[in-house]
Amino acid sequence: MLDIKDLHAAIGGNEILRGLSLAVGAGEVHAIMGPNGSGKSTLAQVIAGHEDYEVTSGSVQYEGRDLLELAPEERAREGIFLGFQYPVEIPGVNNAYLLKAAVNAKRQHEGKDEIDAFEFLKLAREKMAALGMDPKFLNRGVNEGFSGGEKKRNEILQMAMLEPKLAVLDETDSGLDIDALKAVAEGVNALRSPERAIVLVTHYQRLLDYIEPDRVHVLSEGRIVRSGDKSLALELEEKGYEWVREAANA
């Protein structure tokens, strides 16, 4: 589904990704781990299409197409979802409006009619209940005054409504208490399916206790330096990132 080859990307002239390669197949869950500054978030933003990041060489194929040619909104309509590390507050735009606009943008792209208003509300309420979100959040400004946990739940709600083919979750676990972490993990697990791929970007192993990855990759200085199964995350937790750096330099 996603095939990244020798990707180099920079922001403001600073090269962050330095030859990253990664292949994620349908039905798979991959975890990208690594110390701060290793390029995890840059990878997530490059996949989503952030225009401040400049891809200097390499390629990103998504379902056999050149992903880098597409604008962020086109990527979203093609089924890519980025869960933000820091979801943006947008006062004056209510949550229901954004959800509906997002769902309809995708439906229009797929040649479908707009979602029925009643159907939309029913679906949103169901998904919110599953995430332990109060339905009143639908009528609040997008992320406006939300706590950290509420913002992350709101990201997962958007993902659940949009049913992406490829979900990239950027440090969705950071700043969450255990209840919120479980709710978020359940939301992600509910989306696991043979047609869908999920990339979890995380600093800590903790999230992987609740979402079991098929593959774990360790990122250091803009490159994947180790890949393995879920046991790699545990090993990393035990030995720390220093171990990876040493292994990479060895």
Binding site: A48, E51, A71, A76, R77, V88, I90, A101, L162
Partner: peptide
């Protein structure tokens, strides 16, 4: 905020209008 809306499938022009109205 513009980028956030675009990652949700909303085109640039529409996103600008939404934020201006908001």
């Amino acid at each position: 905020a513009l980028y956030y809306l675009r990652t949700r499938g909303i085109g640039r022009q529409r996103a600008r209008r939404i934020l201006t109205r908001a």
